[in-house]
Design a binder for these strands. Structure first.
Lengths: 138, 138
DNA sequence: TTAAAGTTGCGTCGTTTACTAATGTATTGT
DNA sequence: ACAATACATTAGTAAACGACGCAACTTTAA
Protein backbone atom coordinates (compact mmCIF):
# COMPACT_ATOMS: atom_id res chain seq x y z
CA UNK A 1 0.00 0.00 0.00
CA UNK A 2 1.16 3.47 -0.73
CA UNK A 3 1.76 6.09 1.90
CA UNK A 4 -0.39 9.01 0.76
CA UNK A 5 1.63 11.88 -0.66
CA UNK A 6 -0.34 14.23 1.54
CA UNK A 7 0.98 12.52 4.65
CA UNK A 8 4.52 12.68 3.36
CA UNK A 9 4.12 16.35 2.53
CA UNK A 10 2.72 17.01 5.99
CA UNK A 11 5.85 15.50 7.51
CA UNK A 12 8.04 17.67 5.30
CA UNK A 13 6.20 20.87 6.13
CA UNK A 14 6.32 20.10 9.84
CA UNK A 15 10.01 19.25 9.61
CA UNK A 16 10.52 22.63 8.03
CA UNK A 17 8.62 24.31 10.84
CA UNK A 18 10.62 22.37 13.40
CA UNK A 19 13.81 23.78 11.92
CA UNK A 20 12.59 27.26 12.69
CA UNK A 21 14.03 27.99 16.12
CA UNK A 22 12.19 29.49 19.04
CA UNK A 23 8.60 29.50 20.23
CA UNK A 24 7.87 32.44 17.93
CA UNK A 25 9.38 30.71 14.95
CA UNK A 26 6.73 31.61 12.47
CA UNK A 27 6.90 30.78 8.77
CA UNK A 28 4.69 31.70 5.88
CA UNK A 29 3.10 29.27 3.46
CA UNK A 30 5.11 30.38 0.43
CA UNK A 31 8.32 29.99 2.38
CA UNK A 32 7.46 26.49 3.60
CA UNK A 33 6.20 25.40 0.20
CA UNK A 34 9.30 26.61 -1.61
CA UNK A 35 11.66 24.92 0.84
CA UNK A 36 9.91 21.59 0.40
CA UNK A 37 9.15 21.81 -3.30
CA UNK A 38 5.39 21.95 -2.92
CA UNK A 39 2.69 24.12 -4.43
CA UNK A 40 1.57 26.85 -2.03
CA UNK A 41 -2.05 26.03 -2.73
CA UNK A 42 -1.79 22.43 -1.73
CA UNK A 43 0.40 23.27 1.25
CA UNK A 44 -2.38 25.42 2.60
CA UNK A 45 -4.77 22.49 2.60
CA UNK A 46 -2.25 20.35 4.42
CA UNK A 47 -1.55 23.03 6.99
CA UNK A 48 -5.26 23.44 7.55
CA UNK A 49 -5.57 19.76 8.44
CA UNK A 50 -2.62 20.07 10.78
CA UNK A 51 -4.13 23.08 12.45
CA UNK A 52 -7.48 21.37 12.92
CA UNK A 53 -5.61 18.49 14.54
CA UNK A 54 -3.86 20.88 16.90
CA UNK A 55 -0.35 20.28 15.64
CA UNK A 56 0.26 23.81 14.38
CA UNK A 57 -1.16 27.24 15.07
CA UNK A 58 -1.73 30.03 12.62
CA UNK A 59 -1.83 33.80 12.61
CA UNK A 60 -3.85 35.56 9.96
CA UNK A 61 -3.38 38.92 8.32
CA UNK A 62 -0.17 40.69 7.52
CA UNK A 63 2.96 39.08 8.98
CA UNK A 64 0.90 35.99 9.64
CA UNK A 65 2.11 32.44 9.25
CA UNK A 66 2.33 29.08 10.97
CA UNK A 67 4.17 27.74 13.97
CA UNK A 68 4.34 24.45 15.81
CA UNK A 69 1.77 24.08 18.56
CA UNK A 70 4.16 22.07 20.71
CA UNK A 71 7.74 20.87 20.98
CA UNK A 72 8.98 18.67 18.10
CA UNK A 73 9.70 15.86 20.55
CA UNK A 74 6.00 15.82 21.36
CA UNK A 75 4.88 15.33 17.77
CA UNK A 76 5.10 11.83 16.33
CA UNK A 77 4.51 10.18 12.99
CA UNK A 78 1.36 8.71 14.51
CA UNK A 79 0.08 12.22 15.28
CA UNK A 80 0.81 13.41 11.78
CA UNK A 81 -0.75 10.43 10.03
CA UNK A 82 -3.79 10.68 12.27
CA UNK A 83 -4.15 14.36 11.45
CA UNK A 84 -4.11 13.70 7.72
CA UNK A 85 -5.69 10.28 7.33
CA UNK A 86 -7.27 9.51 10.68
CA UNK A 87 -6.80 6.32 12.63
CA UNK A 88 -6.36 3.43 12.20
CA UNK A 89 -3.25 3.79 10.07
CA UNK A 90 -4.15 0.61 8.22
CA UNK A 91 -7.85 0.29 7.73
CA UNK A 92 -9.28 -2.92 6.48
CA UNK A 93 -12.14 -2.58 4.05
CA UNK A 94 -15.73 -3.40 4.92
CA UNK A 95 -15.79 -7.15 5.36
CA UNK A 96 -17.69 -9.09 2.74
CA UNK A 97 -19.40 -11.65 4.91
CA UNK A 98 -16.95 -14.38 3.98
CA UNK A 99 -16.29 -17.17 6.46
CA UNK A 100 -12.83 -15.93 7.44
CA UNK A 101 -13.45 -12.20 7.03
CA UNK A 102 -13.61 -11.46 10.75
CA UNK A 103 -10.47 -13.34 11.63
CA UNK A 104 -8.55 -11.72 8.81
CA UNK A 105 -9.64 -8.31 9.98
CA UNK A 106 -8.54 -9.07 13.54
CA UNK A 107 -5.13 -10.11 12.32
CA UNK A 108 -4.61 -6.91 10.38
CA UNK A 109 -5.86 -4.94 13.35
CA UNK A 110 -2.99 -6.37 15.33
CA UNK A 111 -0.55 -5.48 12.57
CA UNK A 112 -1.97 -1.99 12.61
CA UNK A 113 -1.45 -1.79 16.35
CA UNK A 114 2.21 -2.62 15.93
CA UNK A 115 2.60 0.00 13.25
CA UNK A 116 0.94 2.66 15.37
CA UNK A 117 3.18 1.82 18.29
CA UNK A 118 6.23 2.22 16.09
CA UNK A 119 4.96 5.52 14.75
CA UNK A 120 4.48 6.83 18.27
CA UNK A 121 8.21 6.39 18.82
CA UNK A 122 9.33 8.41 15.83
CA UNK A 123 9.22 12.12 16.56
CA UNK A 124 9.39 15.24 14.49
CA UNK A 125 12.73 16.04 16.07
CA UNK A 126 14.38 13.29 14.01
CA UNK A 127 12.99 14.77 10.83
CA UNK A 128 14.31 18.22 11.58
CA UNK A 129 17.98 17.56 12.20
CA UNK A 130 19.93 20.34 10.57
CA UNK A 131 23.56 20.01 9.53
CA UNK A 132 24.82 22.70 11.91
CA UNK A 133 23.01 21.16 14.84
CA UNK A 134 20.82 24.21 15.35
CA UNK A 135 18.14 23.25 17.80
CA UNK A 136 14.75 24.21 19.04
CA UNK A 137 14.77 26.58 21.99
CA UNK A 138 12.03 26.00 24.52
CA UNK B 1 -4.10 4.14 4.10
CA UNK B 2 -6.39 1.39 3.05
CA UNK B 3 -5.41 -2.26 3.04
CA UNK B 4 -6.16 -3.38 -0.53
CA UNK B 5 -9.21 -5.61 -0.78
CA UNK B 6 -7.16 -7.99 -2.88
CA UNK B 7 -4.79 -8.59 0.02
CA UNK B 8 -7.68 -9.16 2.37
CA UNK B 9 -9.26 -11.61 -0.06
CA UNK B 10 -5.97 -13.45 -0.41
CA UNK B 11 -5.88 -13.94 3.35
CA UNK B 12 -9.42 -15.27 3.31
CA UNK B 13 -8.80 -17.71 0.50
CA UNK B 14 -5.65 -18.97 2.17
CA UNK B 15 -7.46 -19.31 5.50
CA UNK B 16 -10.02 -21.41 3.71
CA UNK B 17 -7.29 -23.61 2.24
CA UNK B 18 -5.68 -23.91 5.64
CA UNK B 19 -8.91 -25.28 7.02
CA UNK B 20 -8.73 -28.12 4.56
CA UNK B 21 -6.95 -30.88 6.44
CA UNK B 22 -4.10 -32.97 5.18
CA UNK B 23 -1.32 -32.47 2.68
CA UNK B 24 -3.64 -33.51 -0.10
CA UNK B 25 -6.34 -31.11 0.98
CA UNK B 26 -7.23 -29.79 -2.39
CA UNK B 27 -10.03 -27.32 -3.01
CA UNK B 28 -11.55 -25.96 -6.19
CA UNK B 29 -11.95 -22.31 -7.04
CA UNK B 30 -15.75 -22.31 -6.95
CA UNK B 31 -15.67 -23.92 -3.54
CA UNK B 32 -13.19 -21.42 -2.11
CA UNK B 33 -14.94 -18.46 -3.68
CA UNK B 34 -18.35 -19.48 -2.37
CA UNK B 35 -17.07 -20.00 1.17
CA UNK B 36 -15.52 -16.56 1.26
CA UNK B 37 -18.16 -14.68 -0.67
CA UNK B 38 -15.98 -13.86 -3.65
CA UNK B 39 -16.45 -14.08 -7.39
CA UNK B 40 -14.77 -17.18 -8.86
CA UNK B 41 -13.18 -15.16 -11.63
CA UNK B 42 -11.49 -12.71 -9.30
CA UNK B 43 -10.47 -15.51 -6.96
CA UNK B 44 -8.58 -17.13 -9.79
CA UNK B 45 -6.53 -14.01 -10.29
CA UNK B 46 -5.69 -13.87 -6.61
CA UNK B 47 -4.80 -17.55 -6.51
CA UNK B 48 -2.57 -17.08 -9.54
CA UNK B 49 -0.60 -14.42 -7.69
CA UNK B 50 -0.31 -16.71 -4.69
CA UNK B 51 0.89 -19.54 -6.87
CA UNK B 52 3.50 -17.37 -8.56
CA UNK B 53 4.72 -16.39 -5.10
CA UNK B 54 4.99 -20.05 -4.15
CA UNK B 55 2.35 -20.00 -1.42
CA UNK B 56 -0.03 -22.42 -3.11
CA UNK B 57 0.18 -25.10 -5.74
CA UNK B 58 -2.36 -25.96 -8.38
CA UNK B 59 -3.50 -28.94 -10.39
CA UNK B 60 -5.26 -28.46 -13.69
CA UNK B 61 -7.84 -30.56 -15.44
CA UNK B 62 -10.53 -32.73 -13.94
CA UNK B 63 -10.32 -33.05 -10.16
CA UNK B 64 -7.91 -30.16 -10.16
CA UNK B 65 -7.74 -27.44 -7.55
CA UNK B 66 -5.46 -25.63 -5.17
CA UNK B 67 -3.55 -26.59 -2.05
CA UNK B 68 -1.15 -24.89 0.31
CA UNK B 69 2.48 -25.20 -0.68
CA UNK B 70 3.59 -25.38 2.94
CA UNK B 71 2.35 -25.63 6.49
CA UNK B 72 0.08 -22.78 7.66
CA UNK B 73 2.56 -21.96 10.43
CA UNK B 74 5.09 -21.19 7.73
CA UNK B 75 2.92 -18.66 5.93
CA UNK B 76 2.73 -15.18 7.41
CA UNK B 77 0.84 -11.98 6.69
CA UNK B 78 4.10 -10.59 5.38
CA UNK B 79 4.32 -13.42 2.84
CA UNK B 80 0.76 -12.84 1.70
CA UNK B 81 1.05 -9.08 1.39
CA UNK B 82 4.32 -9.46 -0.45
CA UNK B 83 2.74 -11.92 -2.86
CA UNK B 84 -0.09 -9.53 -3.69
CA UNK B 85 1.47 -6.09 -3.37
CA UNK B 86 5.19 -6.66 -3.17
CA UNK B 87 7.49 -5.22 -0.54
CA UNK B 88 7.82 -2.82 1.13
CA UNK B 89 4.43 -2.99 2.79
CA UNK B 90 4.39 0.79 3.10
CA UNK B 91 5.98 2.41 0.11
CA UNK B 92 6.72 6.08 0.20
CA UNK B 93 6.10 7.91 -3.03
CA UNK B 94 8.86 9.25 -5.22
CA UNK B 95 10.46 11.99 -3.23
CA UNK B 96 9.95 15.48 -4.60
CA UNK B 97 13.35 16.97 -3.98
CA UNK B 98 12.18 18.89 -0.95
CA UNK B 99 14.66 19.72 1.76
CA UNK B 100 13.32 17.17 4.22
CA UNK B 101 12.15 14.57 1.73
CA UNK B 102 15.00 12.14 2.41
CA UNK B 103 14.66 12.25 6.18
CA UNK B 104 10.92 11.78 5.98
CA UNK B 105 11.37 8.77 3.78
CA UNK B 106 13.90 7.25 6.17
CA UNK B 107 11.48 7.67 9.05
CA UNK B 108 8.68 5.90 7.22
CA UNK B 109 11.11 3.20 6.16
CA UNK B 110 11.66 2.47 9.83
CA UNK B 111 7.93 2.39 10.45
CA UNK B 112 7.60 0.00 7.54
CA UNK B 113 10.28 -2.22 9.06
CA UNK B 114 8.33 -2.45 12.29
CA UNK B 115 5.17 -3.32 10.40
CA UNK B 116 6.90 -6.02 8.40
CA UNK B 117 8.36 -7.51 11.55
CA UNK B 118 4.90 -7.66 13.11
CA UNK B 119 3.46 -9.24 9.98
CA UNK B 120 6.13 -11.93 10.04
CA UNK B 121 4.80 -12.99 13.44
CA UNK B 122 1.19 -13.45 12.36
CA UNK B 123 0.72 -16.78 10.65
CA UNK B 124 -1.99 -18.33 8.56
CA UNK B 125 -2.66 -20.80 11.34
CA UNK B 126 -4.30 -18.05 13.39
CA UNK B 127 -6.61 -17.22 10.53
CA UNK B 128 -7.75 -20.77 10.09
CA UNK B 129 -8.90 -21.70 13.57
CA UNK B 130 -12.07 -23.71 13.22
CA UNK B 131 -14.63 -24.04 15.98
CA UNK B 132 -14.19 -27.79 16.39
CA UNK B 133 -10.43 -27.49 16.64
CA UNK B 134 -9.86 -29.53 13.50
CA UNK B 135 -6.22 -29.18 12.62
CA UNK B 136 -3.81 -29.54 9.81
CA UNK B 137 -2.15 -32.91 9.60
CA UNK B 138 1.45 -32.85 8.48
C1' DT C 1 -8.05 51.81 4.16
C1' DT C 2 -5.40 48.92 1.70
C1' DA C 3 -2.52 45.20 0.88
C1' DA C 4 -0.86 40.94 2.77
C1' DA C 5 -1.79 36.69 4.50
C1' DG C 6 -4.61 32.74 6.04
C1' DT C 7 -9.57 30.04 5.15
C1' DT C 8 -12.90 27.53 2.61
C1' DG C 9 -15.14 25.09 -0.83
C1' DC C 10 -15.66 23.55 -5.48
C1' DG C 11 -14.13 21.47 -9.61
C1' DT C 12 -11.35 18.47 -12.30
C1' DC C 13 -8.17 15.40 -14.41
C1' DG C 14 -5.48 11.37 -14.22
C1' DT C 15 -4.52 6.98 -11.90
C1' DT C 16 -5.68 3.03 -9.48
C1' DT C 17 -8.77 -0.51 -7.85
C1' DA C 18 -11.88 -4.05 -8.28
C1' DC C 19 -13.88 -6.18 -10.75
C1' DT C 20 -16.35 -8.91 -15.56
C1' DA C 21 -15.77 -11.30 -19.69
C1' DA C 22 -13.75 -13.93 -23.15
C1' DT C 23 -10.53 -17.04 -24.65
C1' DG C 24 -6.73 -20.36 -24.07
C1' DT C 25 -4.54 -24.58 -22.09
C1' DA C 26 -3.93 -28.70 -19.44
C1' DT C 27 -5.77 -33.08 -17.39
C1' DT C 28 -8.71 -36.92 -16.80
C1' DG C 29 -12.67 -40.19 -16.94
C1' DT C 30 -14.76 -43.04 -20.31
C1' DA D 1 -9.49 -40.21 -28.77
C1' DC D 2 -12.68 -37.13 -27.06
C1' DA D 3 -15.31 -34.43 -24.41
C1' DA D 4 -15.96 -32.57 -19.98
C1' DT D 5 -13.82 -30.12 -16.48
C1' DA D 6 -10.93 -27.00 -14.17
C1' DC D 7 -7.06 -23.83 -14.03
C1' DA D 8 -4.55 -19.69 -16.81
C1' DT D 9 -4.23 -15.38 -19.12
C1' DT D 10 -5.44 -11.20 -21.11
C1' DA D 11 -8.31 -7.38 -22.16
C1' DG D 12 -11.58 -4.20 -21.00
C1' DT D 13 -14.27 -1.05 -17.89
C1' DA D 14 -16.82 1.63 -14.42
C1' DA D 15 -16.40 3.75 -10.09
C1' DA D 16 -13.61 5.65 -6.55
C1' DC D 17 -9.78 8.12 -4.95
C1' DG D 18 -5.77 11.22 -4.91
C1' DA D 19 -3.66 15.36 -5.94
C1' DC D 20 -4.02 19.06 -7.10
C1' DG D 21 -5.80 24.38 -9.24
C1' DC D 22 -8.84 28.20 -8.76
C1' DA D 23 -11.67 31.66 -6.90
C1' DA D 24 -13.97 34.11 -3.45
C1' DC D 25 -13.94 35.26 1.51
C1' DT D 26 -12.04 36.78 6.06
C1' DT D 27 -8.78 38.59 9.16
C1' DT D 28 -5.05 41.63 10.52
C1' DA D 29 -0.95 44.88 10.44
C1' DA D 30 0.75 49.03 8.81
Amino acid sequence: MRLPLKTEYACQVLAQLAKTPGPNGMRQVDDLATAEGLSPNYSVQILTSLRQAGLVESRRGKNGGYLLARHPQEITLADIAKAIEGLPLIESSGGNGGESADRVREAWDRANGALEAACREITLEELAVTEDGGDWVI
